[in-house]
Simulated assay, not measured.
Amino acid sequence: MEGLKVSDANLVVYVHPSKGDKVYQAILRELSSLLFTFSEIFDGVVLSYNDVNFLDKCAKILPGVHPYFAVKLKAKFLLFSPKPNMLLEGKVVKLTQGSIHVIVLGFASAIITEEDIREEFVHKTKHGQDVYASRSHKRHVIKVGTMIRFLVKSFDEEILHIFGSLIPDHTGSIHWLDKNLEDTTPIGRTAKKTRESEGESIMIDRDSVGRETFPMDNIEKYNLRSQGFHVGLHLSECLK
């Protein structure tokens, strides 16, 4: 699935003096506050972080009424950054005559309205259940619980809401597509391709952030939560 990427970032975390004897916990708490929110710096929703390493042995104390100290560290972030024309995957949670409602990665909502559903699909009610069935392929059916692949039209960063489309032929039920589409189709090529893009500066020191795409097959490795912390240096002693 597109829209997932891993970023290596050098950043600065400001810690209150009262947390001087618990620096590591304070930093993890600060990083956790970023989870499942859209970050303009990273240009994506922070899903997970790990490999947290301190870059300096001692932090820099900032002058002021409350002299916070700045801790430089390096961490790896898993980001969700859907862009127009990307292909996403999600689970159908609701169907109506004019829309398909989807959950992506268990937290982001998406909607595909009637005007963005190709004419091949017809809304029907079978055994009291709403479905979208293909006129061309009898077994290509979308219903509640179906995992679908759809195209991104736009993404509302504030409410983490996606507007999608099922107009392209290589969108629809993933189960049906994987069985019936050849590798020569756009989705077949996309699934095999790994992309890398240049990073951007972050936070106060404006260091670069390296990025790479994140295959859907590896999503279980991260479990969409923080894990696998590796602390290079303990700062609590030099900050007392």
Rank of each mutant, 00 (worst) to 15 (best):
L177I: 14
G164C: 02
L181T: 05
V71S: 06
G90Q: 03
G98S: 14
H123F: 15
L105T: 00
R149M: 11
P168T: 02
H66R: 13
H101E: 15
T184N: 13
E89F: 01
T96E: 15
I117E: 01
I117W: 05
I111E: 12
L78H: 10
D130A: 13
F77M: 03
H101D: 14
K126A: 09
F121Q: 08
A110S: 09
V122H: 13
K138G: 07
P84F: 06
T185K: 10
I159S: 12
K143W: 02
D169M: 13
S165V: 04
H127R: 13
K72A: 02
A133L: 12
G90W: 04
I187S: 15
F69D: 00
I100A: 10
L151S: 12
G128T: 08
S81M: 01
E115C: 04
L160C: 06
D169C: 06
V71F: 01
K179T: 10
I112K: 05
H101A: 10
V102S: 03
I142M: 13
H123E: 06
K91F: 09
L177W: 10
H137T: 01
G172M: 12
T190D: 05
K91I: 14
L95T: 05
S109N: 12
D169E: 11
L79Q: 00
F77C: 01
F77Q: 03
E119S: 14
S134L: 13
R135P: 00
K143F: 07
L78Y: 06
H161Q: 07
S134E: 04
R195Y: 08
F121H: 09
T113K: 15
I117R: 05
G145V: 08
E196Y: 09
E114V: 06
Q97S: 15
L151A: 07
I112Y: 03
T146R: 12
E158F: 06
K138E: 08
I117T: 07
G98A: 11
I167F: 11
N180M: 05
G128V: 03
H140Q: 12
H123Y: 15
D169V: 11
N85W: 10
I100L: 07
P186N: 06
V71M: 03
L78Q: 04
H170N: 08
L177A: 11
A75P: 02
A108D: 03
S165M: 09
K94L: 13
K124N: 10
N85Q: 12
H175F: 12
F77V: 03
A191E: 12
D169G: 06
L181F: 12
F163M: 06
K143L: 09
I100K: 11
K153E: 07
K192I: 01
F69P: 00
V141E: 10
K153G: 01
T194Q: 11
K91G: 00
S154M: 02
A191L: 14
M147S: 09
F121E: 07
K153M: 07
D116L: 11
